[in-house]
Design a protein around this nucleic acid. Structure first.
Lengths: 393, 393
DNA sequence: GCTGCCCTCCAAATCGATTTGTGATTCCGG
DNA sequence: CCGGAATCACAAATCGATTTGGAGGGCAGC
């Protein structure tokens, strides 16, 4: 008759006491629990692996004080297998035994080693987000939304800044893959990086932000930029402007096309000299506006749509310098609705680009694949962007 | 006579060709390389571990297509040990052999599994940064600086947002520890969390931002807030104001004391009703300023120092609403020099808080410990903060 | 020809967990 | 009182790398 389980040995020599994380529990002598449980079958265990090392001189003890599942098993008087099952719940374990295990865990302050677990399960519970620059409000918002969505599900967030450089982008992509990230959110400007395809083909879920990647299993979350710019342009048009201008960003098609569509619908003609390009920065917007104002023909535009708020802010600065009133002389609208949009004077009319929601949705898409709840073709979730009218237009 | 090494077998059945990351190299039949090398000692290897599994029905193949060090070894006709040594350079390997190994690596598209490596070496090459909110420019700047400094050294960055909540802070701290982070940067508001001590005591390097933690081995990077506020206050005093006000932040001593020191030095008296507290946000600054303006006594302050730029911006808004001119009626100064400081009108006089540099320095501190270059007591690096005079004061 | 050393490489143990196949009990109904 | 099902725990293999003691061949010196 075995009287092992449920009879947690009274733990004579389990020194580490009740500390949450014992400082030096290096030798919670595994044999302590063993000796008391009747010495039956448990004693015949003969593996020489960890947890058995008594205190012979050659103790490795690198990051010292590691309490392993073996220590717990020994103290609880069960096998490591059982401890694992108690923890994961993958197989039934008698209530009494379970209690003993939990007790041992508490006494030793055991914390599972995630790395070892990851190796075996091939799950790191970490996802990576690749952005051009976390310093940019849009991306930090996105990252925050993502982190919040993932945190709820027990996933951690790993961040990479590419600065929009293609080589950094692919470098990070393989790095992240090698690190065993469970999923990847790609919000880099140039999502065309061949690097993404590897992880995606290797079975790591990838969700892309913005770009629609031509891959059967990559999810995408987009915002309807085209529609947003269309709406804000239509708003500008209600002021019946004579000359519409636009400061577009480097290779930014959807926002441009929303603008042209609205203008065309209204039957306006577009003066090509009023269509200039900025580099998405505040300074770029400033320069672009100066370029517009410096044209030969003195006919100033009376409404300007900027492809993002930063450039709109720069544009307003240039206009102020030129002693032009906003919105009196020229109306200005932006895109994104960053914090700064309400800090400039006058407050910017713009379109909200729901960065936080994009992050949350990317997270959900990822989680649904990771949990196995979804496993089909690439999906696309499109987020609307709302027009918010303030004083600049 | 052994003719093994240097004689990479001509690889008859190394199907995966030259792909960088073969899609399904599940069975680059390990025995292929083996059979050709003379069948000498190599054949006597009898372990049944990975890489030996032929193609029997029960193939696990979770994240399929993993090329392991064993595959490489087999193809190169050497042992896994040798491959490892080639990769790490920890022991000499004959040039010929090395070539064969590299060749096999290339052909198979082998990439080391970081998780397995971490398990053995106890190094994850990942550090964690714990911040209140990555969305806050100060923290995203800090994170960026940190990431840049670490990236150079081959470390990745893992981000946690605590929202300033103590329980989240400690939760993340143990999470990060369990995940095997090699180091931790703690920039959370309440660095007093007992959670930090665990990792620190367990030998994981920790560097704290701002707070001076009372622990012998925790490095700290601080900025001289007190000095900064002192300087900016002195600047305000050059305008010979009658009534100085300050909007301080929740529990923010150093900035407050710099202010009081400067005021006292100038021989001014402080009206307690002109010392109010905001919650570090723009709205908080707005409310605080309204509180000041709404006092019984009609004597408006003529100079206000705000503990951060966000509150200064809010304060300016409140002043504009009250039709008070900045800096004509009242001068305003902030602290941090965020982007928005130059977007408000008038541009804000402030003190630059070198967030990026803080991050870089935190990274350096960490790296110096991780590389073993330094291993002493906790250090402290203090960064100066520069006064930048613009139009608001 | 023998000893001893150097150069290369290998076998086996190890990191700390999870996963299965299987053995041992107990509980039932027939 | 027996056979089968249900329950519970264990041993051993495994994840993919690193690490260390040692083996074997080649060569020099005596």
């Amino acid at each position: 008759m075995r009287l092992r389980y449920g009879r947690r040995p009274e733990a004579v020599s389990a020194q580490p006491g009740d500390l949450a994380l014992p400082l030096v529990p290096d030798a919670p002598d595994p044999r302590a629990g063993r000796a008391q449980n009747g010495g039956g079958m448990a004693a015949k265990r003969s593996r020489t692996s960890a947890g058995e090392r008594p205190a012979d001189g050659a103790a490795p003890a690198l990051r010292q004080g590691q309490v392993t599942i073996n220590h717990v098993a020994a103290l609880a008087g069960v096998s490591p297998t059982t401890v694992s099952h108690v923890l994961s719940g993958k197989r039934l374990v008698a209530a009494e035994t379970r209690g003993a295990v939990y007790d041992a865990i508490r006494r030793l302050g055991y914390r599972p080693n995630h790395v070892a677990r990851s190796l075996r399960t091939r799950r790191s519970h970490m996802i990576a987000v690749v952005v051009p620059d976390i310093t940019n409000t849009f991306y930090s918002m996105l990252t925050r939304g993502l982190a919040d969505a993932l945190d709820r599900e027990g996933y951690g967030t790993y961040v990479c800044n590419t600065d929009g450089l293609l080589d950094r982008e692919s470098k990070f992509l393989v790095d992240v893959f090698d690190r065993g990230a469970d999923g990847i959110v790609l919000a880099a400007v140039d999502a065309a990086s061949a690097g993404v395809l590897k992880p995606a083909d290797m079975g790591v879920p990838v969700v892309c932000v913005g770009h629609r990647l031509d891959h059967p299993r990559i999810d995408v979350v987009t915002v309807d930029d085209e529609r947003g710019s269309y709406e804000v342009t239509r708003h500008l048009l209600t002021r019946r402007p004579e000359r519409m201008a636009m400061i577009q960003g480097l290779n930014g098609t959807p926002r441009l096309s929303g603008f042209t569509r609205a203008v065309a619908e209204a039957g306006h003609a577009l003066d090509p000299s009023l269509m200039v390009t900025g580099d998405w920065t505040r300074h770029g917007g400033y320069e672009a506006m100066r370029q517009i104002l410096g044209r030969r023909s003195r006919a100033y535009p009376d409404a300007v749509f900027c492809a993002n708020d930063l450039m709109a802010i720069g544009a307003i600065e240039a206009l102020r310098e030129a002693r032009l009133d906003v919105p009196g002389d020229v109306a200005v609208a932006g895109f994104d609705d960053v914090d700064a949009a309400t800090i400039v004077h006058p407050p910017l009319t713009t379109v909200v680009n729901p960065a936080y929601d994009i992050g949350v949705n990317a997270g959900k898409l990822l989680v649904s694949r990771l949990s196995g709840e979804y496993d089909g073709d690439g999906r696309e979730v499109g987020l609307p962007c709302l027009l918010v009218v303030r004083e600049s237009a």
